[in-house]
Design a protein around this nucleic acid. Structure first.
Length: 294
DNA sequence: AAGAGCGACGGTCACAGGCT
DNA sequence: AGCCTGTGACCGTCGCTCTT
Protein backbone atom coordinates (compact mmCIF):
# COMPACT_ATOMS: atom_id res chain seq x y z
CA UNK A 1 0.00 0.00 0.00
CA UNK A 2 1.05 3.56 -0.63
CA UNK A 3 1.36 5.28 2.72
CA UNK A 4 0.31 8.84 3.14
CA UNK A 5 3.84 9.89 4.00
CA UNK A 6 4.95 8.65 0.59
CA UNK A 7 2.20 10.64 -1.10
CA UNK A 8 3.34 13.70 0.83
CA UNK A 9 6.81 13.53 -0.60
CA UNK A 10 5.89 12.25 -4.06
CA UNK A 11 2.63 13.73 -5.21
CA UNK A 12 1.34 12.72 -8.62
CA UNK A 13 -1.30 14.95 -10.15
CA UNK A 14 -4.49 13.21 -11.32
CA UNK A 15 -7.20 14.60 -13.59
CA UNK A 16 -9.34 15.02 -10.49
CA UNK A 17 -6.57 17.08 -8.91
CA UNK A 18 -6.78 19.38 -11.95
CA UNK A 19 -10.50 19.81 -11.29
CA UNK A 20 -9.88 20.52 -7.60
CA UNK A 21 -7.21 23.13 -8.33
CA UNK A 22 -9.33 24.74 -11.07
CA UNK A 23 -12.33 24.92 -8.72
CA UNK A 24 -10.23 26.74 -6.13
CA UNK A 25 -9.26 29.44 -8.62
CA UNK A 26 -12.93 30.49 -8.41
CA UNK A 27 -13.45 30.59 -4.64
CA UNK A 28 -12.35 28.93 -1.39
CA UNK A 29 -14.20 25.66 -0.78
CA UNK A 30 -14.86 23.23 2.07
CA UNK A 31 -14.54 19.47 1.48
CA UNK A 32 -18.34 19.26 1.50
CA UNK A 33 -18.64 21.93 -1.21
CA UNK A 34 -15.91 20.23 -3.26
CA UNK A 35 -17.79 16.92 -2.93
CA UNK A 36 -20.95 18.57 -4.28
CA UNK A 37 -19.08 20.28 -7.09
CA UNK A 38 -17.34 17.02 -8.07
CA UNK A 39 -20.71 15.67 -9.21
CA UNK A 40 -20.22 17.88 -12.30
CA UNK A 41 -16.86 16.25 -13.14
CA UNK A 42 -16.15 13.25 -15.35
CA UNK A 43 -15.06 11.29 -12.27
CA UNK A 44 -17.11 12.49 -9.28
CA UNK A 45 -15.96 11.65 -5.76
CA UNK A 46 -18.02 8.87 -4.23
CA UNK A 47 -17.57 9.86 -0.61
CA UNK A 48 -16.91 12.96 1.44
CA UNK A 49 -14.24 11.03 3.32
CA UNK A 50 -12.28 10.58 0.10
CA UNK A 51 -12.50 14.28 -0.71
CA UNK A 52 -11.11 15.17 2.71
CA UNK A 53 -8.25 12.74 2.15
CA UNK A 54 -7.36 14.06 -1.27
CA UNK A 55 -7.52 17.69 -0.14
CA UNK A 56 -5.22 16.74 2.70
CA UNK A 57 -2.80 15.11 0.27
CA UNK A 58 -2.83 18.22 -1.92
CA UNK A 59 -2.16 20.36 1.15
CA UNK A 60 0.77 18.13 2.10
CA UNK A 61 2.07 18.55 -1.45
CA UNK A 62 2.02 22.32 -0.96
CA UNK A 63 -0.74 22.93 -3.51
CA UNK A 64 -3.45 23.95 -1.03
CA UNK A 65 -3.74 25.54 2.37
CA UNK A 66 -6.57 25.11 4.86
CA UNK A 67 -8.03 27.29 7.61
CA UNK A 68 -11.09 26.97 9.82
CA UNK A 69 -14.34 28.81 9.30
CA UNK A 70 -15.68 30.36 12.48
CA UNK A 71 -18.95 28.44 12.12
CA UNK A 72 -22.00 28.66 14.33
CA UNK A 73 -23.43 25.32 13.22
CA UNK A 74 -23.48 21.98 14.98
CA UNK A 75 -20.14 20.25 15.40
CA UNK A 76 -16.57 21.30 14.84
CA UNK A 77 -15.57 24.13 12.56
CA UNK A 78 -15.26 23.24 8.89
CA UNK A 79 -11.99 23.70 7.07
CA UNK A 80 -11.94 25.81 3.96
CA UNK A 81 -9.24 25.36 1.35
CA UNK A 82 -7.49 27.90 -0.84
CA UNK A 83 -4.74 27.51 -3.41
CA UNK A 84 -1.18 28.30 -2.47
CA UNK A 85 0.91 30.27 -4.94
CA UNK A 86 2.45 26.91 -5.95
CA UNK A 87 -1.00 25.44 -6.52
CA UNK A 88 -2.08 28.47 -8.52
CA UNK A 89 0.98 28.16 -10.72
CA UNK A 90 0.28 24.44 -11.17
CA UNK A 91 -3.24 25.04 -12.41
CA UNK A 92 -2.30 28.03 -14.59
CA UNK A 93 0.71 26.11 -15.96
CA UNK A 94 2.87 29.18 -15.55
CA UNK A 95 5.56 29.26 -12.87
CA UNK A 96 5.99 33.03 -13.10
CA UNK A 97 2.33 34.07 -12.88
CA UNK A 98 1.41 36.64 -10.23
CA UNK A 99 -1.54 36.33 -7.80
CA UNK A 100 -4.81 37.70 -9.24
CA UNK A 101 -5.40 39.80 -6.11
CA UNK A 102 -3.31 40.86 -3.14
CA UNK A 103 -5.01 38.60 -0.64
CA UNK A 104 -5.83 35.72 -2.97
CA UNK A 105 -3.75 33.22 -0.96
CA UNK A 106 -4.36 34.72 2.50
CA UNK A 107 -6.54 33.54 5.33
CA UNK A 108 -10.03 35.09 5.24
CA UNK A 109 -10.65 37.56 8.05
CA UNK A 110 -13.36 36.31 10.47
CA UNK A 111 -15.62 39.22 9.56
CA UNK A 112 -15.77 37.93 5.97
CA UNK A 113 -16.48 34.27 6.82
CA UNK A 114 -20.27 34.45 6.46
CA UNK A 115 -20.03 36.34 3.18
CA UNK A 116 -17.42 33.97 1.75
CA UNK A 117 -19.29 30.83 2.80
CA UNK A 118 -22.49 32.05 1.18
CA UNK A 119 -20.68 33.14 -1.98
CA UNK A 120 -18.91 29.77 -2.31
CA UNK A 121 -22.23 27.94 -1.88
CA UNK A 122 -23.79 30.16 -4.55
CA UNK A 123 -20.95 29.46 -6.98
CA UNK A 124 -21.02 25.68 -6.41
CA UNK A 125 -24.80 25.68 -6.93
CA UNK A 126 -24.38 27.68 -10.14
CA UNK A 127 -22.05 25.01 -11.55
CA UNK A 128 -24.44 22.23 -10.45
CA UNK A 129 -27.41 24.02 -12.02
CA UNK A 130 -25.48 24.49 -15.26
CA UNK A 131 -24.40 20.84 -15.27
CA UNK A 132 -27.93 19.41 -14.94
CA UNK A 133 -29.02 21.38 -18.04
CA UNK A 134 -25.91 20.84 -20.14
CA UNK A 135 -25.02 24.53 -19.86
CA UNK A 136 -21.39 25.69 -19.86
CA UNK A 137 -20.08 28.25 -17.38
CA UNK A 138 -17.44 30.30 -19.17
CA UNK A 139 -15.40 33.44 -18.59
CA UNK A 140 -15.61 33.14 -14.79
CA UNK A 141 -14.09 35.98 -12.78
CA UNK A 142 -13.67 35.46 -9.01
CA UNK A 143 -14.42 38.08 -6.39
CA UNK A 144 -12.55 41.38 -6.81
CA UNK A 145 -10.97 40.45 -10.15
CA UNK A 146 -13.50 41.99 -12.56
CA UNK A 147 -13.41 45.78 -12.58
CA UNK A 148 -16.27 47.86 -13.95
CA UNK A 149 -15.43 51.53 -14.39
CA UNK A 150 -18.51 53.66 -13.99
CA UNK A 151 -18.92 56.98 -12.27
CA UNK A 152 -16.57 58.10 -9.53
CA UNK A 153 -15.88 54.65 -8.13
CA UNK A 154 -15.44 51.29 -9.89
CA UNK A 155 -17.62 48.26 -9.18
CA UNK A 156 -16.00 44.99 -8.19
CA UNK A 157 -18.65 42.23 -8.45
CA UNK A 158 -18.48 39.23 -6.10
CA UNK A 159 -18.35 37.12 -9.26
CA UNK A 160 -18.84 37.49 -12.99
CA UNK A 161 -19.57 34.65 -15.42
CA UNK A 162 -21.28 33.73 -18.66
CA UNK A 163 -23.71 30.86 -19.27
CA UNK A 164 -23.51 29.24 -22.68
CA UNK A 165 -26.68 27.31 -23.47
CA UNK A 166 -26.70 24.18 -25.66
CA UNK A 167 -28.25 26.31 -28.46
CA UNK A 168 -25.17 28.59 -28.12
CA UNK A 169 -27.05 31.64 -26.81
CA UNK A 170 -25.05 33.34 -24.06
CA UNK A 171 -26.01 35.26 -20.93
CA UNK A 172 -23.58 37.10 -18.69
CA UNK A 173 -24.04 37.88 -15.02
CA UNK A 174 -22.51 39.90 -12.23
CA UNK A 175 -23.14 38.66 -8.70
CA UNK A 176 -23.64 40.92 -5.67
CA UNK A 177 -24.18 38.72 -2.64
CA UNK A 178 -26.26 40.51 -0.04
CA UNK A 179 -25.41 39.62 3.54
CA UNK A 180 -27.60 42.37 5.00
CA UNK A 181 -24.45 44.21 6.05
CA UNK A 182 -24.86 47.14 3.64
CA UNK A 183 -27.71 49.63 3.76
CA UNK A 184 -30.21 49.28 0.95
CA UNK A 185 -31.01 52.94 0.55
CA UNK A 186 -28.28 55.42 1.32
CA UNK A 187 -27.28 58.30 -0.89
CA UNK A 188 -24.10 58.78 1.14
CA UNK A 189 -22.62 55.28 1.18
CA UNK A 190 -20.97 54.12 -2.03
CA UNK A 191 -21.49 50.54 -0.80
CA UNK A 192 -25.26 50.85 -0.52
CA UNK A 193 -27.38 48.69 -2.80
CA UNK A 194 -28.79 51.89 -4.32
CA UNK A 195 -25.35 53.17 -5.26
CA UNK A 196 -24.37 49.83 -6.77
CA UNK A 197 -27.57 49.56 -8.82
CA UNK A 198 -27.14 53.13 -10.12
CA UNK A 199 -23.59 52.38 -11.21
CA UNK A 200 -24.64 49.12 -12.89
CA UNK A 201 -27.32 51.01 -14.81
CA UNK A 202 -24.74 53.55 -15.97
CA UNK A 203 -22.40 50.78 -17.10
CA UNK A 204 -25.14 48.83 -18.87
CA UNK A 205 -25.86 51.77 -21.17
CA UNK A 206 -22.30 51.69 -22.47
CA UNK A 207 -21.49 47.99 -22.05
CA UNK A 208 -20.77 46.32 -25.40
CA UNK A 209 -22.39 43.13 -24.14
CA UNK A 210 -25.55 43.25 -22.02
CA UNK A 211 -25.64 41.36 -18.72
CA UNK A 212 -27.79 40.86 -15.64
CA UNK A 213 -26.97 41.50 -11.99
CA UNK A 214 -27.91 38.77 -9.52
CA UNK A 215 -28.52 39.59 -5.87
CA UNK A 216 -28.49 36.40 -3.78
CA UNK A 217 -29.85 37.40 -0.35
CA UNK A 218 -28.86 35.53 2.81
CA UNK A 219 -31.30 37.47 4.99
CA UNK A 220 -35.09 37.56 5.30
CA UNK A 221 -37.86 37.79 2.71
CA UNK A 222 -38.35 41.41 3.88
CA UNK A 223 -34.80 42.24 2.93
CA UNK A 224 -35.36 40.66 -0.47
CA UNK A 225 -38.52 42.72 -0.95
CA UNK A 226 -36.66 45.96 -0.09
CA UNK A 227 -34.10 45.23 -2.79
CA UNK A 228 -36.77 44.34 -5.37
CA UNK A 229 -38.67 47.55 -4.52
CA UNK A 230 -35.50 49.59 -4.96
CA UNK A 231 -34.85 48.00 -8.35
CA UNK A 232 -38.45 48.78 -9.35
CA UNK A 233 -38.04 52.47 -8.44
CA UNK A 234 -34.79 52.70 -10.38
CA UNK A 235 -36.06 51.05 -13.53
CA UNK A 236 -39.68 52.21 -13.40
CA UNK A 237 -41.32 52.64 -16.78
CA UNK A 238 -38.90 50.39 -18.63
CA UNK A 239 -39.85 47.12 -20.22
CA UNK A 240 -37.44 45.12 -18.07
CA UNK A 241 -34.90 45.45 -15.31
CA UNK A 242 -31.40 43.93 -15.25
CA UNK A 243 -31.70 43.06 -11.55
CA UNK A 244 -32.66 39.60 -10.33
CA UNK A 245 -33.01 38.95 -6.59
CA UNK A 246 -33.15 35.50 -4.98
CA UNK A 247 -33.08 34.14 -1.45
CA UNK A 248 -29.89 32.12 -1.22
CA UNK A 249 -31.69 29.26 0.55
CA UNK A 250 -34.21 29.05 -2.32
CA UNK A 251 -31.39 29.03 -4.87
CA UNK A 252 -29.62 26.22 -3.01
CA UNK A 253 -32.77 24.17 -2.47
CA UNK A 254 -32.81 22.38 -5.85
CA UNK A 255 -30.07 21.46 -8.38
CA UNK A 256 -32.12 22.85 -11.29
CA UNK A 257 -31.78 26.39 -9.92
CA UNK A 258 -31.85 28.25 -13.27
CA UNK A 259 -35.24 26.88 -14.26
CA UNK A 260 -37.03 27.01 -10.93
CA UNK A 261 -39.26 30.06 -10.25
CA UNK A 262 -37.20 31.27 -7.28
CA UNK A 263 -36.08 34.64 -8.70
CA UNK A 264 -37.72 38.01 -8.17
CA UNK A 265 -37.50 40.94 -10.56
CA UNK A 266 -39.32 44.30 -10.42
CA UNK A 267 -41.61 43.25 -13.26
CA UNK A 268 -42.30 39.78 -11.94
CA UNK A 269 -42.33 37.61 -8.83
CA UNK A 270 -41.32 33.97 -8.73
CA UNK A 271 -39.74 33.65 -12.14
CA UNK A 272 -37.06 31.30 -13.36
CA UNK A 273 -33.84 32.95 -14.38
CA UNK A 274 -33.30 31.35 -17.77
CA UNK A 275 -36.85 30.80 -18.94
CA UNK A 276 -37.66 34.50 -18.56
CA UNK A 277 -34.29 35.62 -19.82
CA UNK A 278 -34.48 33.54 -22.97
CA UNK A 279 -37.76 35.30 -23.74
CA UNK A 280 -36.28 38.74 -23.04
CA UNK A 281 -33.27 37.89 -25.15
CA UNK A 282 -35.53 37.47 -28.17
CA UNK A 283 -37.26 40.81 -27.49
CA UNK A 284 -33.94 42.56 -26.89
CA UNK A 285 -32.50 41.24 -30.13
CA UNK A 286 -35.40 42.77 -32.03
CA UNK A 287 -35.00 46.13 -30.30
CA UNK A 288 -31.24 46.21 -30.16
CA UNK A 289 -30.87 49.65 -31.71
CA UNK A 290 -32.79 51.28 -28.86
CA UNK A 291 -30.90 52.31 -25.70
CA UNK A 292 -31.95 50.02 -22.88
CA UNK A 293 -31.54 52.03 -19.70
CA UNK A 294 -31.44 55.57 -18.26
C1' DA B 1 -22.44 14.85 27.01
C1' DA B 2 -23.59 14.62 22.24
C1' DG B 3 -22.81 15.58 17.57
C1' DA B 4 -20.04 16.70 13.70
C1' DG B 5 -15.67 17.47 11.12
C1' DC B 6 -11.30 16.01 10.46
C1' DG B 7 -6.41 13.82 10.82
C1' DA B 8 -4.01 9.60 11.12
C1' DC B 9 -3.61 5.00 10.15
C1' DG B 10 -4.19 0.35 8.34
C1' DG B 11 -6.33 -2.28 5.12
C1' DT B 12 -8.33 -4.03 0.14
C1' DC B 13 -8.89 -3.59 -4.77
C1' DA B 14 -7.86 -2.22 -9.54
C1' DC B 15 -4.80 -0.79 -12.85
C1' DA B 16 -0.49 0.37 -15.32
C1' DG B 17 4.18 -0.34 -16.30
C1' DG B 18 8.57 -2.76 -15.98
C1' DC B 19 11.07 -6.94 -15.66
C1' DT B 20 12.07 -11.85 -16.31
C1' DA C 1 2.40 -14.79 -19.54
C1' DG C 2 3.30 -14.18 -14.91
C1' DC C 3 5.12 -11.60 -11.27
C1' DC C 4 6.33 -7.46 -8.80
C1' DT C 5 5.93 -2.70 -7.67
C1' DG C 6 3.90 1.79 -7.44
C1' DT C 7 -0.14 4.43 -7.26
C1' DG C 8 -4.92 6.05 -6.66
C1' DA C 9 -9.52 5.10 -4.97
C1' DC C 10 -12.04 3.61 -1.41
C1' DC C 11 -13.36 1.87 3.31
C1' DG C 12 -13.44 1.52 8.40
C1' DT C 13 -11.81 2.82 12.92
C1' DC C 14 -9.90 5.65 16.55
C1' DG C 15 -9.11 9.81 18.77
C1' DC C 16 -8.98 14.78 18.93
C1' DT C 17 -11.23 19.33 18.62
C1' DC C 18 -14.88 22.36 18.64
C1' DT C 19 -19.73 23.86 19.25
C1' DT C 20 -24.24 23.45 21.13
Amino acid sequence: MATRSLIKTRWQKTSRDDEILAALTRCPLTAEEMFKLSQTWSQPFTSLRRVQERMQDLSAAGQLQAWRYATTGQGGARLYYKLTLTGYRTVMQDDQIKPPTKRFFHEISPGRHRHQRALSQFIVQTYLAAHVRGIKVTDFHPENTFRIDCGERPLWPDARFTLMLPNESQFSYCVELDNSTESVLSHKSTDSILSKMQRYLIDLVAAPQSYRVLFPVTGSADRLQHIVDLARNLTDGRSFSPFYVVLLDDYLAHPDAFFRPCFHAPQNKNISLLRSQARQFQVRSALLARPAFV
